[in-house]
Every structure is written in structure tokens, then in C-alpha cells.
Amino acid sequence: MAKMVDITEKLTFEGNPSLMIKGKKLEVNADAPTMLKVMGLMGSDDPGVSEILKTYDMMFPEKSKKEIEKLGLSFNDLIVVVQEAVGLIVGGVGSQGEQ
């Protein structure tokens, strides 16, 4: 019989993390397939507008995007939101503003 190892206890199934902006909790998609695509897009030292917009579209569910749109952010602020969302997931522990 082939060897089998159950790794369920080694995995986390906590759900998606969130960013807090002006008291609004914005969910960020943190599943592995999405993050692998994001890392591919944001892997260069200077991602362009196209990469940032694709990343934004993949990382935020529709509900979060609607809340972000209501904020009326400048493009530079939107870049900060995307970068912080990426940092929240890949950097995780110890990032500024963590609660």
C-alpha cells in the first residue's frame, strides 16, 4: 500500500485577512493561487499601472472594491492600498497597523 500522510493539522484555514481604512474593514483575497499570480505581477522592482490594476482586481472581492471606490482615493493612495494588501499577506506578522 502507498504511504499516506495527513497534514491537515499543519495547515491554517483562518479565512482572508482584512485592511482597515477609515473604520471600514476591507477583505483581501489571500488564497494561494491568487497570491501566486499577484507575486508574478508584482515581482519586478517597478510594477507598472497594468500590473497594479490587475493585482487590485485579483486581491479585492467586489464588496471591498465598492468600499474603496467610495473613498475616492488618489491613484497614489490606491497604490499604497495595494502594496499594503500584498504586505499583509506575504509579510503578515509585524506589519504596521496590525491589530
Score class of each variant (00 low, 15 high):
K22V: 11
Y56E: 06
K65C: 00
M42Q: 08
E69T: 10
G40E: 08
K66N: 13
K22L: 12
N16H: 12
S74M: 12
Y56C: 09
F60C: 01
K70L: 09
V38H: 05
M59S: 09
K70W: 04
M59K: 00
A30N: 10
N29H: 13
Y56R: 01
L53G: 03
E62S: 10
G48N: 14
S18I: 08
L19G: 04
K25C: 14
G43D: 14
T55V: 02
E14P: 07
K22A: 13
D31H: 01
E67T: 02
K54P: 03
E69Y: 03
L26E: 04
K54N: 11
M58K: 08
K54Q: 15
E51P: 06
F60M: 02
P61F: 07
G43R: 08
G72T: 06
T55L: 00
I52T: 09
P47I: 07
L36M: 15
S50G: 11
P17R: 00
K37M: 10
D31N: 10
K10I: 10
T34K: 04
L26Q: 06
E67F: 01
K24N: 15
E62Q: 06
K10E: 15
K70Q: 15
D57R: 03
S44M: 11
K54I: 08
L41S: 07
Y56D: 04
V49N: 09
L73S: 12
K25H: 12
K54R: 09
K66T: 06
L41N: 03
S64I: 02
I68Y: 04
E67N: 05
T55M: 00
L26C: 04
A32H: 05
P33E: 07
E14F: 12
K70R: 14
N16Y: 03
A30D: 14
P17Y: 02
S44D: 13
V49G: 10
N16F: 04
L53N: 11
L11P: 14
M42P: 08
T34M: 04
M42K: 06
N16W: 04
E51G: 03
K25R: 15
I68K: 06
P61H: 00
V28E: 02
Y56P: 03
E67Y: 02
L71R: 01
E69Q: 07
M35D: 05
I21T: 07
S74R: 11
G43A: 13
L19Y: 02
G48L: 00
D57F: 00
K37T: 13
Y56G: 03
K63T: 10
M35N: 10
L26D: 09
G40T: 12
K25F: 09
E27G: 02
M35F: 11
N29E: 13
K66D: 14
G40L: 02
S50I: 07
T34W: 01
G72M: 12
K37V: 10
K10A: 13
K65I: 05
P33K: 07
K66A: 15
G40C: 08
G43I: 13
M58T: 05
F75H: 11
S50P: 01
K10Q: 14
E27A: 09
V38P: 08
I21Y: 08
Y56K: 03
G48P: 05
S74W: 01
K63H: 06
